[in-house]
């Protein structure tokens, strides 16, 4: 037979595809129907409620609410940065061979993790009861002047977050192979250099996912800052509802904003995780954007020959 030679010029005939009747998943249809039924019932219940949905879209972009969303965004970012920096310091202190620093770090985490953040916020706001005057030597002022709602919110949220972050960072550092420290030391690197150049970059892979989680948590926990008169979303929503009497409607408006903010940061987290996965796997899977671009390119190359003809 000259089969092999013949095959090249003639267009290859695709083999007959298997046509089998797929396994029927009746359970999926039942489950889907049940879910839809429940959603419809909930939808009916909410639409019959005494809630004025009509005003919600108007208030989403209301100036007061926008300013509240901005305050929520920046206080949560600043508090998270404070928590992250302090958390790394606490984690390193906790693992130090110096018994004083490790005990201090232990007590810090024990206290700030063990008391409600609401109480911590209120204590910072009323710190003038303990220290009526702030005297830093070069700077002296009434504590009540210094402890603004912003500062109380920042300290209350940030110092609380540091306790949680230190545990996350500690877990990350401990996840890095001991051999990495040995190799760095054998090259003559000091403890500090080893930590900064070798250990922390690798620990980030373990630290980033729970930190993203912590940040999304922080976006919502920052709503507690309303107790120290900080003008974040919930405070602003309450300000409006106290005059318009649309109480629940304003909470809906605030919740929509929280959902939007957390969604945006979930996307950011995805890209951050990819960055710190460098070197840990041979090749990274494409991002949704890269996949989209690739598909578009394929679509384009599929069409182009037709145009050329």
């Amino acid at each position: 037979m000259t089969d092999i030679v013949d095959k090249v010029p003639t267009p290859s005939v695709p083999p007959e595809q298997i046509k089998a009747i797929p396994v029927r998943h009746y359970g999926r249809w039942v489950a889907g129907a049940v879910v839809i039924a429940i959603l419809v019932l909930i939808g009916i219940a909410f639409s019959n409620a005494d809630i004025n949905y009509g005003i919600i879209p108007d208030y989403i972009t209301d100036g007061t609410i926008l300013s509240g969303a901005w305050h929520t965004l920046y206080i949560s970012v600043l508090a998270m940065v404070l928590g992250l920096v302090l958390g790394v310091i606490l984690a390193v202190m906790r693992m130090s061979s110096n018994p004083v620093t490790s005990t201090v770090a232990w007590f810090y985490v024990w206290f700030f993790r063990g008391t409600p953040v609401l109480v911590q916020l209120l204590i910072w706001y009323n710190i003038a009861l303990v220290f009526p005057v702030l005297n830093l030597g070069f700077y002296k002022d009434e504590m009540n002047q210094v402890m603004t709602p912003f500062l109380a919110a920042l300290l209350g949220l940030g110092l609380n977050e540091a306790a949680y972050m230190s545990e996350i960072v500690r877990a990350g550092i401990q996840s890095v192979d001991e051999g990495q420290t040995e190799a760095s030391h054998a090259l003559g690197m000091t403890q500090g250099k080893t930590l900064r150049r070798v250990i922390l970059p690798q620990a980030m892979r373990v630290i980033v996912p729970p930190t993203g989680n912590e940040y999304i948590n922080m976006l919502k926990t920052s709503s507690l800052a309303y107790v120290v008169q900080f003008n974040e979303l919930i405070k602003r929503a309450q300000d409006i509802s106290s005059t318009s009497l649309a109480v629940v409607e304003m909470y809906f408006v605030a919740s929509i904003w929280y959902l939007m903010l957390t969604s945006v940061f979930s996307i950011g987290q995805y890209y951050l995780e990819r960055r710190y996965a460098r070197g840990s796997s041979r090749s990274l899977p494409p991002t949704p954007l890269q996949r989209l671009r690739k598909n578009l390119r394929q679509f384009g190359s599929f069409r182009r020959p037709e145009v050329a003809r």
Binding site: D177, Q180, P201, Q202, G279, S280
Partner: peptide
């Protein structure tokens, strides 16, 4: 175990 720095 080589102990190369995997992120570099």
């Amino acid at each position: 175990r080589f102990n190369l720095f995997p992120h570099m």
